[in-house]
Simulated scan of single mutants.
Amino acid sequence: MHKSPIAVADQLAGRLRELREHRRVSQDVLARASGVSRPTLAAMERGASNPRLSNLEQLAKALNVDVLDLLLCRPTSEQRPAKDESSARIAKNVNRLRVGLALSQESLSIASGHFRTYVGNLEHQRVNPSIGDLERIAKVLGVDVTRLLSPLTESDAERDMQKMVRRARSVSSAGSDQ
């Protein structure tokens, strides 16, 4: 089941407020610590905004959690900044899911209501997506937006390495056939 962008904004609002209050900091203090303006932070906590990934990263860093913790309710013991950037995770996860569904970047862009080059730019980390952008892409890919933000597992990395080796072999064998 997919959450609507409104549900994702509400989920983000509740989690952000919960994390901030758990750390006993005011909106003013979190705004200063993160570099996100107080009105923007207040709008996020009301569920009245469609924040960009960069704002979520700033808030997560100031709260000493991963961006994923702004959407998921995980035990405090599991809340810590990730080792990799959320934009890199999104790029890898979108690519892996898109390729698995045999979709081109252009077809995913169009199906999710973006310009035809948007997914390519997302996969190359050239855009700063909003939660709404990610939600629309996740819906077309058949996953929840949190899946796009999830860290890559060891098996994901191993599969990527195997794909790279297969591609390199096919390129070298194609070159030797000429």
Rank of each mutant, 00 (worst) to 15 (best):
N50H: 06
A60R: 01
K92Q: 09
R24F: 03
G100V: 09
D177R: 14
V8C: 10
S107Q: 15
R23D: 11
L152E: 13
I90H: 10
L108G: 00
P75L: 00
N128S: 08
K163R: 06
A33Y: 03
S87M: 12
S26K: 07
R159N: 07
A168V: 13
S109A: 11
Q79P: 01
L19V: 02
G35L: 12
N55I: 03
Q162S: 14
T146Q: 01
S176E: 10
A111P: 01
P39D: 11
R15D: 03
R126K: 15
E45S: 04
A13Y: 00
R89Y: 13
A7W: 02
S34C: 04
D144F: 07
R96C: 08
S26A: 04
P39C: 04
Y118C: 05
R159T: 01
V36S: 06
R126E: 13
P5H: 04
M44I: 10
S130R: 13
Q58Y: 04
P129K: 11
D160K: 00
S176G: 02
I90V: 15
S34F: 04
I110A: 10
V127K: 15
S49C: 05
N50T: 00
S86W: 14
V67N: 10
L68M: 07
M44E: 02
V65Y: 04
A42S: 15
R23I: 03
L16M: 05
L72K: 11
V99T: 08
D156V: 10
L122I: 09
I90L: 13
G47V: 02
S155A: 14
L16W: 01
C73G: 02
S107C: 05
P51Y: 10
K163S: 03
S172H: 06
A62C: 14
N128R: 08
Q105V: 00
V8S: 09
Q125N: 07
R23L: 09
N95W: 10
M164V: 12
N95M: 05
L97W: 10
R169C: 06
G100P: 08
S173Y: 11
N121E: 15
A43Y: 06
S87R: 15
G47Y: 01
R52H: 14
N64K: 14
Q178V: 11
E57M: 09
L71R: 04
D66G: 12
G132C: 08
K3A: 12
M1S: 03
L19F: 01
L19E: 09
D84P: 03
L71N: 02
R15W: 04
R147Y: 07
R159C: 04
K139Y: 03
L41T: 02
P129G: 14
R20L: 05
N93K: 14
G100W: 08
V145F: 07
V143A: 01
E123H: 03
S4H: 00
V25E: 11
V165I: 15
L97I: 04
G132D: 14
I110V: 15
V127D: 15
L70W: 01
S104W: 06
C73M: 06
P81S: 00
R20A: 10
V29C: 01
S77I: 12
P75R: 05
R136G: 03
L134A: 06
S49F: 03
Q27S: 07
V94C: 09
N95E: 13
V65L: 03
S173R: 14
K83Y: 11
S172M: 13
L53Q: 10
R136S: 12
E158N: 00
A174G: 15
A42M: 05
E123G: 03
